[in-house]
């Protein structure tokens, strides 16, 4: 099947490995990702929080461009996913806003006809494509790898009926079906602080410390994320956390799509493992598990 693809700004830069691994997984499973032509920034939480109409217009430009390519729009970044989903919902339910947005888009001869469904790749993998189809293409087992599935905030919240919002299961099931050992992880939907790492670092460092600690206490060897901001917060600031709280974290932080890619036979390069700040030495570990 074809899916319309919205990478978003982070996936072009700091979250490049997320983009690489999502593309690998979908093509390996025989599905095409059609990237939106000349997409723009979704506006992110910051725009949405400060300028209402403009943020909706910016976001809707992507929807208008996407609509030309198909009906299912995939956005891997949790923030993009939430913003695009929210925009779609507001435009569908608020005719005044819809009129304002239409009027603005008309300046570039664009229009949005409300036909899109906004999807997250995790949801598409688990519900559309299905665990069975993924297992059929599996060439490498994740057996013996202890993973803590970290969903963060914006996949399960606000509630879209995708999964349980306190104890989501999609990623747990996906990784378990590929052989990984999913450890109990009470912090799976706790907030990483998002951009607070820049604005109020002392607050964000505390939040990330708690998440890392919970994972480690349950013997996780890797935390698996669904969001580029969670990934970088948890990975890039472990040094600072260690210094501030006198801890010794050195935990690899991966995207779920990287592990799925591995299971589907990707080389480390193909799924961006060379971009990790804290290396993930999967070979030694997984060979050990295979024995």
């Amino acid at each position: 099947m074809d899916y319309v693809y919205y990478p978003g700004c982070s996936l072009e830069t700091s979250g490049k490995a997320y983009d690489e691994s999502v593309r690998f997984v979908f093509s390996q499973l025989g599905h095409r990702l059609l990237e939106i032509e000349d997409w723009n920034c979704c506006g992110a939480t910051y725009y949405m929080a400060t300028r209402e109409t403009i943020s909706l217009v910016i976001s809707a430009r992507n929807l208008a461009l996407a609509e030309k390519l198909g009906q299912n729009l995939i956005a891997p970044c949790s923030s993009c996913y939430t913003i695009l989903y929210k925009t779609n919902k507001i435009l569908q339910s608020n005719p005044i806003m819809k009129a304002k947005v239409d009027q603005s888009l008309r300046r570039d001869k664009l229009s949005y006809n409300l036909s899109l469904k906004i999807r997250h790749p995790l949801e598409v993998l688990v519900t559309d494509i299905g665990l069975h189809a993924i297992q059929e293409k599996q060439t490498f087992s994740l057996r013996g790898l202890k993973v803590a599935p970290y969903y963060g905030c914006q996949i399960v919240r606000p509630d879209r009926g995708l999964d349980d919002k306190e104890d989501p299961q999609m990623m747990d099931k996906l990784l378990a079906s590929l052989g990984a050992e999913v450890v109990p992880f009470a912090a799976k939907v706790r907030c990483c602080g998002g951009m607070l790492m820049t604005t109020f670092p002392e607050v964000a460092l505390k939040l990330n410390r708690e998440i890392l600690e919970t994972a480690l206490r349950n013997k996780a060897e890797v935390i698996v994320t669904t969001c580029p901001l969670c990934q970088i917060n948890l990975e890039a600031y472990q040094d600072k956390i260690n210094k501030k709280f006198n801890t010794h974290f050195h935990l690899p932080i991966l995207y779920f799509s990287q592990l799925v890619g591995l299971a589907l036979g990707a080389s480390p390069q193909q799924i961006g493992l060379h971009r990790q700040l804290i290396p993930f030495n999967f070979e030694a570990k997984l060979q050990e598990g295979l024995r």
């Binding site: 217009v57 430009r61 009027q103 603005s104 300046r107 570039d108 060379h274 700040l277």
Partner: peptide
């Protein structure tokens, strides 16, 4: 690790993007 782009990535059609923004 190729995770920062020194130069900004731009959309192609910045002129029309501004038109949309002005109207918005």
């Amino acid at each position: 690790r190729g995770r920062i782009s020194l130069l900004p990535k731009k959309i192609k059609n910045t002129a029309n993007f501004s038109k949309i923004l002005n109207e918005a």
